[in-house]
Write a protein that binds this DNA or RNA. Structure first.
Lengths: 247, 247
DNA sequence: ATACTTATATTCTCCGACAAAAAACACGCG
DNA sequence: CGCGTGTTTTTTGTCGGAGAATATAAGTAT
């Protein structure tokens, strides 16, 4: 598995289960609170000392956590003013970490709509590119992922992992590093929708046949067909997701 | 202050005249060094104390700067190991700040190719969406930006600002917040190419007519035409950029 | 009422010390 | 010699305290 594939799947590159430093924890805790709307844009967070006391850490830890949030554009600090949450338009909604945080709660419907609209723009074009630029090695890696997927189905974690591997191989085949970054972000969101679809026992459509068709289109170098199949795949996923969100 | 910074300052929001905290400065300095390849991925940066001494700041400032870089996924710190630069595949190439840093030096050709490939995927689709979803207010804002652009031409900062306003209005009209984020990233890169095209006195093609055609297509709600014009626009920009990079 | 000065709250910066982690090393044992 | 085991050492992680800088808020004089 290449590093790129791991990125796509959101796996930590060193799969070790190490304890993270506390500034990371605090940063994520505050970040989740912000992106899920617990602190509204424009409002000011508690002062450094108060945060430090409420989490029982030192002020240095809090400051480093706040720097991590300000690097993401979530907050803005000024003396005498405090640390205020920046307007949502100033966030980078394509930051994979931000997306993960966002999915700690149910995201707003217009956000889900935006996501699928974006997928319908990007992924068909990527499939078309992949059909043109694929290498034999990448094709083999797609084929392997496809087999794994057929064996386990999407309801099991192994199958979901294979699905992500399959799509990662497609992205790698486009030979476009910005597309890879973009789909790393999208992947963070897709993982969430997949998770929710199966968590609610809704028995969604198993897209193995479409995946096979996509693979064959790419293998044949038929960009038009690859594009068409990808569109179908995403529209199906959107229907499944809508069904879950409606209740 | 570097030239690029001047350009960006001229184009960004007006009164950004205040001195930034030193952790921000250090973070950007180190970040630029990393993304321009001065520190290669996998290598370890100097220790916190060494960095602190070389910039004449305290270790706390350096630590906060490093946390900002680690939030961007550029570095990874471990006790006894040091702080090492993470693999380029783990960076988020759609982070606008990262892109700005990257353009402090001439970016690698395959990166520029990736960028225009991505623009050709995203922007035509966005134009089509905008043609379908535009509101009167957004249309008016596009019209105003177009006038400004025609008055000043792209060779002056006012004209470049108007150009950005025009495209921002289109993005806003798509009513898709992820698309807006995406083009904020792309915009950071586009500003660079615009700057370089004029810096080299190459007298590129002035795209005012195409912009007007795009505006009319959107106003008419003609998505197909909006898409076609946008493709032309980007292809022209790519040709201009290639001409500049060739020398 | 306006302009200027002062007070105040908050972040910004610095320092010095110790704790924790992980690699490197030394050592003993089979 | 090879191998596990404990020790050393280096580097980041955490802490508490102190003063400086900054921008709002309040007060004062004209």
């Amino acid at each position: 598995m290449t590093v790129i594939e791991k990125v796509q799947k959101g796996l930590s590159v060193a799969n070790t289960k190490k304890r993270e430093p506390s500034h990371t924890t605090i940063s994520r805790t505050l970040g989740v609170a912000i992106v899920t709307g617990e602190f509204e844009p424009g409002s000011v967070l508690p002062g450094e000392i108060e945060i430090a006391e409420s989490y029982s850490v030192s002020r240095s830890v809090v400051r480093e956590a706040l720097r991590m949030l300000s690097a993401r554009g979530l907050i803005e600090s000024k003396p005498k003013i405090g640390t205020r949450v920046r307007a949502r338009e100033l966030w980078n909604l394509l930051d994979p970490t931000l997306l993960e945080w966002m999915f700690e709660a149910a995201p707003p419907p217009h956000f889900v709509r935006s996501l699928f609209e974006l997928r319908l723009i990007v992924e068909p074009a990527a499939a078309e590119l992949a059909a043109r630029k694929k290498t034999a090695r990448q094709l083999a890696s797609m084929g392997h992922a496809l087999e794994e997927m057929a064996k386990h189905t999407l309801s099991k974690p192994e199958g979901q992992l294979a699905d992500q591997e399959f799509h990662a191989a497609i992205l790698e085949a486009t030979d476009n590093e910005m597309l890879v970054s973009l789909s790393a972000s999208i992947g963070a969101a897709v993982r969430w929708t997949t998770y929710f679809k199966f968590r609610n026992n809704k028995k969604p459509h198993d897209p193995i046949e479409e995946h096979r068709a996509l693979f064959e289109a790419i293998a044949d170098g038929d960009g038009e067909r690859a594009r068409a199949v990808t569109i179908k795949l995403i529209e199906q996923a959107e229907r499944d997701t809508q069904r879950v969100l409606e209740q």
